[in-house]
Simulated assay, not measured.
Amino acid sequence: MSEFTHINEQGQAHMVDVTEKVATEREARAEAIIKMAPDTLAMIMNGEHHKGDVFATARIAGIMAAKKTSDLIPLCHPLMLTKVTVDLIPEPEHSQVRIQSLCKLAGQTGVEMEALTAASTAALTIYDMCKAVQKDMLIEGVRLLEKKGGKSGHFKV
């Protein structure tokens, strides 16, 4: 794709018109990684955090964020998501948590931004809940892993 679809002929930002596009099944997977001290990760994994279940809270936050993506990203269409999952995978050998999200729908536009928003927000929620214990956690590697459906076809890292 060689031209920006969110810029009109006058060079102004606008929401893309998807009215004439055929609704198809669409799916996107994304991830984010949050690195932390081994003691911080152990505290989370052992359920010893004084604020409660960090992973459950981050999972719910990610799902809620996916549903609110169009409120956060100015030119995103509001979508009727049919599935959102957020998986938090502790990796003690790397002192990190890998967060992977999946968003699905049958619609006229893709769900990449929703998957990226879900993974990012889950990582931010872990940071928020643990910042009193450790302020130098690092969120990195936010990226699209895979998308299926739509005119541009299948993409996979």
Score class of each variant (00 low, 15 high):
72 L>F: 13
111 V>G: 07
97 V>H: 04
71 D>K: 12
121 T>C: 10
76 C>A: 15
120 S>F: 04
129 M>V: 07
67 K>W: 03
83 K>W: 02
99 I>G: 01
71 D>P: 04
136 D>A: 13
69 T>D: 03
81 L>S: 04
92 P>R: 01
73 I>C: 10
120 S>R: 02
95 S>K: 09
85 T>P: 03
114 E>H: 02
71 D>Q: 15
143 R>V: 11
92 P>H: 07
100 Q>I: 14
74 P>Y: 10
118 A>Q: 06
103 C>P: 05
91 E>D: 15
137 M>H: 06
111 V>I: 11
80 M>Y: 09
114 E>A: 07
132 A>T: 14
78 P>M: 14
119 A>Q: 07
123 A>V: 00
72 L>E: 10
66 A>Y: 05
126 I>C: 07
119 A>F: 09
89 I>M: 13
130 C>R: 06
76 C>N: 10
121 T>E: 06
93 E>D: 14
100 Q>C: 13
133 V>M: 13
85 T>C: 05
118 A>E: 06
125 T>G: 03
66 A>F: 00
135 K>S: 15
109 T>R: 04
77 H>P: 08
68 K>D: 14
90 P>Y: 03
102 L>C: 08
75 L>Y: 08
69 T>G: 08
66 A>G: 05
83 K>G: 01
78 P>R: 06
73 I>G: 09
126 I>S: 01
79 L>N: 05
65 A>N: 07
69 T>H: 12
87 D>S: 07
82 T>D: 14
134 Q>P: 05
123 A>F: 01
139 I>R: 10
135 K>W: 10
123 A>I: 06
141 G>Y: 08
141 G>E: 15
130 C>L: 15
104 K>E: 11
88 L>K: 03
131 K>G: 08
117 T>E: 06
70 S>L: 10
140 E>T: 15
107 G>A: 08
83 K>E: 14
87 D>G: 01
73 I>Y: 06
117 T>D: 01
97 V>M: 11
94 H>K: 15
112 E>K: 01
96 Q>M: 14
70 S>C: 14
108 Q>E: 09
125 T>L: 03
135 K>D: 13
106 A>W: 00
116 L>Y: 02
65 A>K: 02
90 P>Q: 08
135 K>A: 15
68 K>A: 12
141 G>V: 04
84 V>S: 08
121 T>A: 03
120 S>D: 04
106 A>R: 11
71 D>Y: 06
138 L>I: 15
90 P>R: 07
118 A>Y: 08
119 A>M: 09
110 G>Q: 09
124 L>T: 05
139 I>C: 07
122 A>S: 10
107 G>H: 01
124 L>W: 00
